[in-house]
Amino acid sequence: MPADSARPRLAVWKLASCDGCQLTVLDCQDELLALAGEMDIAHFTEATSAELPGPGPFDVSLVEGSVSTPADAARIKQIRADSRTLVTIGACATAGGIQALRNFGDVAEFASTVYARPDYIAALATSTPVSSHVPVDFELPGCPIDKHELIGLLSALLAGREPRIPGHSVCEQCKLRGTACVMVARGTPCLGPVTQAGCGAICPAFGRGCYGCFGPMTAPNVGALVPWLGRLGMPDSDIRRVFATFNVAAFDRLAGGSAAAAARPEPGRRHPGSGA
């Protein structure tokens, strides 16, 4: 498989994650085959055992997963050094993921008393986004990312223009999709007003309130939404938990630490390391 030096080299990397965002890369299906004609896929362990000659440099690196082990903390620095453009994909890579709930628990409990043999395990006290470790050029949010957003991003990079990643809310996508507002029409609590668009507003179309898996939009007004959630019958504990799930560290940063309160196994105990 000769590498055409004129074609950009793409690499896909995995840190702590579920593989779902890489799978979304694979699920670009036809687009991926077309893409393979325009880029050399230089590293994608899940898709191919082929490695093009030389470890780097890579024109574009897509990184899935959060940094949660000493080995990954070192690896991401090498990936950054080897990559011209570094793009993080998904809630784990952009916000620490659901595993960032460990940041708000007592990690000493996890590390030293939870395991039968904790000495077998190497884990950092926190699960943090890639941007806490190295500069990141672009971030695609979502748990998982949306394939249309990914294709749009790669197309933009191939064309040499800045990718457009929306900073507006899910509400706009509901309007575009023609979905009646679930809060107004059905009284269903919804995080759409503060959550970054990109998913296509799937949940409201299925009669479910948005649960924030794309993380906070640019400048969200969480303070204005929370009383509304309460008025629609959502108990405080549920409100705290819904912000403290797939993007816990990102919402927690906005809320000055209160969002993750519900995630603490025992109230009042908080590990000093914050994921955000």
């Binding site: 659901i98 797939f246 519900a262």
Partner: peptide, 23 residues
């Protein structure tokens, strides 16, 4: 890397494990 799902499921609502464990 270990992600400690069974640890942070403690204290969550019984409605949440399908969404959380899907991850």
């Amino acid at each position: 890397p270990p992600r400690f799902f069974e640890a942070f499921l403690r204290g969550r609502s019984y409605r949440e494990p399908p969404d959380i464990t899907a991850r």
